[in-house]
Write a protein that binds this DNA or RNA. Structure first.
Lengths: 249, 249
DNA sequence: GCATTGAACCTGTCTGGCATGTTATCGGTT
DNA sequence: AACCGATAACATGCCAGACAGGTTCAATGC
């Protein structure tokens, strides 16, 4: 007797109300700073008890979508830096998650490049160059660069001499790329100059690391990942988006 | 109803309980399929009302971490993205590499302070101040500062508006501090001026965040954690230390 | 014009209750 | 001894009301 209808979502009233409000928030019905209806107003609107409303609000608060100020009300927050987000894809939740993750990753990779420039050994320089070369091969043959790209970033992380850095990078990767390995999909969807930028930016980073210029390595890695974020947002607009497309290189 | 539980921290009770349970879930205290304590049991355990417990559970349900079955109880679900497990194993594997982990954490916390200075909301400032104050209370009463200290760092991470940051901080904590809650250890083992430095450095960071000065916040957090590393190295030389002694504040 | 005050609202939390689903024990029957 | 159904105990889902604070805003008094 399996209860098919008993999914994690949809069962409780609180879940329904929280998803309703979440949609209104991402749709822009409530803009950042706006005050949402009070709890008692929501109890009337949905004809539920205040318990249910509070559970729904608790979920939104935990997700950082709203902020409750005692005595004042519940206010919509803005989602991390994104000032203008007039368009709302249906996968907004996952999108913001990826962007948040990328921000976290940027923090580490920037420092990773800096430390690598300071500490790299000869053998590690060799490994970085080889990974860099391998990315170039993938670009030339038109095969997917995702894995090769990751190997390059991993080689840089290993050059920090701190094994926590490559460990963390692999952790992040598993968080970004859920499971599907179906990477044979159309590679032609990417802009032509994407590849040029990719290899050029990589080359600049690698040079700085070899020269031992930590500050330059940081700057270039930061620029590289900022470009990655922009490319990701561009892909978002081209409306075909699956997590597997995300290279984040 | 006793005034015993003056846990009146900045973050709501529901948030605290949900993060507590979340940590236990990701730590493996509750494995998939396990039944969590019932609502009334949690009510007694945390000395809060059922309202608060239900809000905490609602958050975990919305995140897909647990499933509530009416009449049966609350059950831990499979961690669909088992991303935290590998890292946890790696960290608990070798405690000797605390220094490596601290370096990783420094990178993260420095940027965390900077982002917090740029993005913090009014309520988050409030939470940071309260956590800071609580650390002071612990110092005054001579009680261990470890938990209060962590709460302060967590409040700063939450002010980044990027939930990955507090997530990661908790991940690191669970890697460093095993499970034992035996914290009644001798407080006199610490250098006298340790406490002075601690609260002073915290205050400088908090001020910079409140003022919205991101660069200063970064610098001060970096100095703070560098001091932490020095203190740790000092403890290493002075005696054998157990993970519980590691404050990393 | 300006400061004060107070009522009306808000969220945070607590208490108690009812409806309903699940589980395990206990007693009787076979 | 094995089986089986009633049932009490316990679980969550939801509701209603209450009180303690914090916030807002407009009327009041100077």
């Amino acid at each position: 007797m399996e209860a098919e209808n008993n999914h994690a979502r949809g069962t409780s009233l609180a879940a329904k109300i929280s998803t309703d409000l979440r949609r209104e928030l991402t749709d822009g019905v409530f803009k950042p700073g706006d005050r949402l209806p009070s709890e008692s107003a929501l109890t009337r609107e949905y004809s539920v008890s205040r318990t249910v409303v509070r559970e729904a609000i608790a979920i939104l608060r935990a997700d950082g979508l709203v902020e409750a100020r005692k005595g004042a009300g519940i206010f919509a927050l803005e989602t991390s830096e994104g000032k203008k987000q007039p368009f709302k894809d249906l996968t907004t939740e996952r999108i913001s998650s990826v962007i948040e993750l990328l921000e976290l990753r940027t923090v580490f990779e920037v420092e990773s490049a800096g430390l690598a420039a300071s500490r790299r050994s000869a053998a590690q320089i060799e490994a970085i160059l080889e990974a860099h070369h391998h990315v170039g091969e993938c670009l030339a043959t038109g095969s997917p660069t995702r894995d090769a790209d990751f190997e390059l970033h991993l080689a840089i992380a290993e050059a920090t001499q701190n094994r926590r850095f490559p460990e963390f990078l692999q952790l992040i990767r598993s968080g970004i790329i859920p499971r599907g390995e179906l990477q044979g999909s159309a590679p032609g969807s990417r802009p032509k100059d994407y590849n040029l930028h990719l290899q050029e930016e990589h080359g600049l980073i690698v040079d700085a690391i070899i020269e031992g210029n930590a500050e330059t390595a940081r700057e270039r890695m930061r620029a590289h990942l900022r470009g990655s974020l922009d490319r990701y947002k561009f892909l978002l607009r081209s409306r075909t988006l699956s997590p597997e497309d995300i290279n984040l290189s």
